[in-house]
Simulated scan of single mutants.
Amino acid sequence: MDRLQNIETFVRVAQTQSFAEAARQLRVAKSVVTTRIKQLEDYLGGPLFHRSTRVVRLSELGQAFLRDCTELVGRANDIVDQMRDVRGRPAGTLRVHALTGFVLGHFGALLRDFQARYPDIRLELMVSDAVVDPVQAGVDCALQIFPAASTELISRPLFPVRRVFCATPQYLAAHPEPQDPRDLHHHKLGLYSGYPTRDRWTFHRDGGELTTYLAAALLTNSVHLLREYALEHAGIVCLPTLVAGDEIRDGRLKVVLPAYQLSSFWLSAVYAGTSRNAFKLKLFMEHITDAFAKVPPWDGALIEKGVLPKELVEA
């Protein structure tokens, strides 16, 4: 019996609450997972799980066993990765879930440089705007602007995500430009559907706040569709500067209500504290923060032009 392998399998079943999902993530047959758990149960002299056709729950023995096991598995993998790094060749697969809005336009060069530095690390990247639990999704981390789905997860901020309302000069020439956030009610608005504040929008100016509720003519989970909608002169949209920075800088889009700031989110890496790829994940997060720093390049260019203020209002 490979005791450490069986313990790692136990931890994965406990985290996913599913033998089938644990098998998928470990890339083995479900029967292999079942065998490993049975071997461990035989060795310990009691059941680790209560199983039914629908539910897999930890037994009292399993609950007592889990905490030390997760720390053991995480530490074992970390030691192996660090020894590989000492030899100059960190290796293995790193699985990442990332927001579509971040990946398109900014991530290709980052991945190229990361793999040039660590050629033996294989990346698997899943892209969507869905909020995921990295453990349940079988990834090492999720790059997202949303709070962690569980208090058992760690959230490490990487860089701020600013948002602005903007429209084409052609649209603003044909419609009265808003001078106050409440003037937005008189325009066709394109809004992102995934923000946790939903229809409630808070604007900051000179230390004060103004809150209003906005109704969208176009509500979507795609910030890239919102950008296209704006570029068709269809209305005013709210976009992250990481998506609209180039268009604002070259004048195809103009920031509306420049005296007001929306609160900013942070793009964070959300991951389990016992990630089996903790060392590789650390290298990846450091690479992102080194590349984008506290002021990402797309914001730095707009600050330099005077389009964005230097100070940041956070959510």
Score class of each variant (00 low, 15 high):
residue 7 I to Q: 12
residue 12 R to T: 02
residue 13 V to D: 11
residue 15 Q to S: 12
residue 15 Q to I: 03
residue 21 E to H: 10
residue 23 A to H: 10
residue 24 R to E: 10
residue 25 Q to A: 03
residue 25 Q to Y: 05
residue 35 T to K: 14
residue 37 I to M: 01
residue 41 E to I: 00
residue 43 Y to V: 00
residue 45 G to F: 05
residue 45 G to K: 07
residue 45 G to S: 11
residue 49 F to Q: 11
residue 50 H to Q: 12
residue 51 R to K: 14
residue 61 L to I: 00
residue 62 G to E: 01
residue 79 I to S: 02
residue 80 V to L: 00
residue 85 D to T: 02
residue 86 V to D: 01
residue 93 T to R: 15
residue 95 R to N: 07
residue 107 F to V: 05
residue 113 D to T: 15
residue 118 Y to F: 13
residue 125 L to M: 15
residue 125 L to T: 14
residue 128 S to L: 02
residue 130 A to E: 12
residue 134 P to H: 01
residue 144 Q to M: 12
residue 145 I to L: 09
residue 147 P to H: 03
residue 149 A to F: 10
residue 153 L to Y: 05
residue 154 I to L: 13
residue 160 P to K: 08
residue 161 V to E: 07
residue 168 T to W: 04
residue 171 Y to G: 05
residue 172 L to W: 09
residue 174 A to R: 07
residue 186 H to N: 06
residue 191 L to Q: 03
residue 193 S to W: 10
residue 194 G to V: 13
residue 196 P to N: 00
residue 198 R to M: 12
residue 202 T to C: 10
residue 206 D to E: 14
residue 207 G to R: 13
residue 213 Y to N: 15
residue 214 L to K: 08
residue 217 A to D: 13
residue 218 L to V: 07
residue 222 S to V: 03
residue 223 V to K: 09
residue 223 V to E: 08
residue 223 V to H: 12
residue 224 H to Q: 14
residue 235 G to A: 07
residue 237 V to E: 06
residue 245 G to N: 10
residue 247 E to K: 05
residue 255 V to Q: 15
residue 257 L to S: 03
residue 258 P to V: 05
residue 258 P to K: 02
residue 259 A to W: 05
residue 261 Q to C: 12
residue 263 S to G: 15
residue 266 W to R: 11
residue 272 A to G: 12
residue 276 R to D: 03
residue 277 N to A: 04
residue 284 F to V: 01
residue 289 T to Y: 07
residue 290 D to W: 01
residue 294 K to P: 12
residue 294 K to C: 08
residue 303 I to H: 03
residue 306 G to T: 12
residue 312 L to C: 04
